[in-house]
Nucleic acid binder design. Sequence first.
RNA 1: GCGGAGUUAGUUUAGUCUGGUAUAACGUCAGCUUCCCAAGCUGAAGGCCACGGGUUCAAAUCCCGCACUCCGCACCA
Length: 485
Amino acid sequence: MDYEAVMKLALERGFYFPSCEVYADAQAGFWEYGPSGVSLKNKFLELWRRELVRRDGMLEIDGAQIMSKSVFEASGHLSNFADPIIKCTKCNSTFRADRVIADVAQIEIPESADLDEFDNAISQNNIKCPKCKGDFEKTKKFNMMFRVGIGPEGEEAYLRPETCQSIFVDFPRLYKTMRGRLPLGIAQVGKSFRNEISPRQSLLRLREFYQAEIEIFCNPSRLDEVEKFAEIQDTIIRVQTDSEPVAMTCKEAVESGTVPNKLVAYYLGILTEFYEKTGIDISKSRFRKLGDKEKAFYAKVAFDFEVETTIGWLELVACNYRSDYDLSGHARTSKEKFDVMDNDEKVLPHIFEISMGIDRSLYAILEHSLKDDKEHERIVLSLKPYLSPIHVGILSLVKKDGLKEKTDEIFLNIKRKFDAFLDHSGAIGRRYRRLDEVGAPFAITVDHQTLEDNTVTIRERDSMKQTRINISEIDSILSESVAFP
RNA sequence: GCGGAGUUAGUUUAGUCUGGUAUAACGUCAGCUUCCCAAGCUGAAGGCCACGGGUUCAAAUCCCGCACUCCGCACCA
């Protein structure tokens, strides 16, 4: 289904909706998760922990969202995470200074250059507004980080623009106290903040958003010594270096040089296996190798994991080989030691990161799972059972003759163990439809026969098939059916 | 940030040109119908029309501003 249909479902069924919507001064780029959205997100993260964090024996931390100025001096965000912008005095159009100068005068000025350089280039080449030929104001820096003032003096600090900086600065302590050995993965789920110029499309471009980031600390001279590689060497990944994605095994990807080494291929492999289990259609995905101009300022090699949706290819994960950019930066600025012993060799670890956008991933899962079942006149959210906000609906066929009481009793017995939803009101077909829309994989219905022989019907969402089971079997059947794979 | 379109109930929407405090469907809730796939019947709740200002006896409707949403441009780890 398309973006509009997902949006409608999100608003009607409590997945997500605009923040502060009752106030007129609500700002763009901020969205809330409702009950269904939170449940889906929690389950998605549980799957992420199982398939990546636990599978690879990573350490998970939970860092502060506000970090000191020094962190971002060391990380380069204060100088690099900003665009030089120029504004036309006549028509108020805003442009990126480096782009206009490159287009008009063919002069390449790096975006991190001093502001004077841009102003000089503009006056020397007599560059005017491309739209109205007006004059430009002086070049300004627009930094995408949110600045905050700490305490009564308003000491300078920033909301983190990516969660991984806490992982980098915590690395020395974690390595020492958690008995670290290279390669070591450290993971974190949390919020990041970026002052986007134009947030768009609900969860797809937010100013406050969730990331699940994994930083792999590794010895750069041993990137092909990866024992675990055997686990995924036959896993098929889709890699795009030119115009079309090409499906290949991880082994072939390394041997052909498409992916630079076994370590990177291993993580692309387990990431693909993870996304397969979210229900996203992997045949509509690709790892797109980024060109030099597209890469982030810290990345040596970068693959974006992208998924095809009705609004185009959507970047869900950035996989960047950051080399020693981060640790050497923090070592230099903090004067702390970030190098460690690996066997008998002292190394400053390199970093490969898997930076996942959670909100976008959830959107992609919803879009790929939402089906219009025209034959039965229903909208079905065919989520994997272990990701469904509601595991099971517990329904009474009718309220009277003691069916309500019997239904309540069943609900009481399972509600702590499963996400169960009790519903007595309205026509039974309507209640099934409602459960279909929030993606509940099962519905259990108590009818008159239940009172005679303690059996209930269990209906399966996608096939609409019903089977009669004993009440005593409910727990084991559900446990098995909604378990994580 | 620029240009265009839009904003009326939970959702989709009529009404805006031709000013007189608002329409419908679906959804929701309660009840009836001994009822297993959005059935039927009865009833109810829900909006002062994004927000702020102006014109007018009177504004959802006209004017100005502003915010947000969508589409393009630009931007985007």
